[in-house]
Amino acid sequence: MLRLLKLELQKLLLNRTSKMLIGISFILPFFVILLSALKINVFGLFTLNLGELGIFNFPVIWHLNTFFASYFKLFFAIVVVSMIGNEYSNKTLKQNLIDGLSKREFISSKCYTILFFSLLSTLLIGVISLGIGWYYSSAINLSHVLEGSTFLIAYFIKLVGFFSLCLCLAVLAKRSAFALAFLGIILIAEWILYGILSWNFEAETVAKIHNLFPLQSMYNLIEQPFQRIAMLKFSRQKIDLTYDYMVHFHEIAIVVLWTVVSIYVAYRLLKKRDL
């Protein structure tokens, strides 16, 4: 396993473009989070201090950070897609197989890399959130940290699921640009399908089906935190809203299922193909 991970890391880290993209996808979100956590004096007019809104307090910070950081996954998605696309365009996939790498090992090495970077990203976001939360929160208790862990798990699953889907599309399309286009097509297709469904069925049924779609199911893992922040702000007033922001087991199960399907399809495609 370490051998396969080492193999893929060498391919990625010696490539200037992917090294840059990996850097961006890791450093940028933390930079943004850190910057927003600082008190910023805007031209001496007023002091922007997002911390005062209470969004950096436990437990909201877990929700907020994982939600925003997951948008930066798009950068690493480009890396995932190009690490397959490049193997095809350089014909190194063929050479790797001739040198004695099996097709299963080839896919495994890509999957280990996805797991490795997802884990790394999760750990970093965990440490940063813990640090900022510590600084802003007056009191810390175990339940706050526990809630954090569920958001971190959701974040990790979300990344792995999304990258696995990218991997599958890249193997299917063989070229990076086409694979990213496929991703866009899936996004649009999900919305069109959603539209058609809501035309014909009740809203509740439609929502249930919609939650099964690959990209929607990944989005569902971490709901948008704005409503929660708003509720936090106006917690004195009674807001009668059904807003379920927690991470649910069935949501994780759906994404894990998509992950397994993506990797399996990628493997079958590669297995059947003549190079």
């Binding site: 193999l7 060498q10 050479q95 790797n96």
Partner: peptide
């Protein structure tokens, strides 16, 4: 084995490419 054209990672040096093959083999 070598097949038709030499296929290596264009951005790596000779030594780095061969290191990769060493890991595979």
């Amino acid at each position: 084995a070598i097949i038709e054209r030499p296929n290596f990672y264009p951005y790596m040096t000779a030594v780095e490419n061969l290191k990769l093959v060493c890991t595979i083999k």
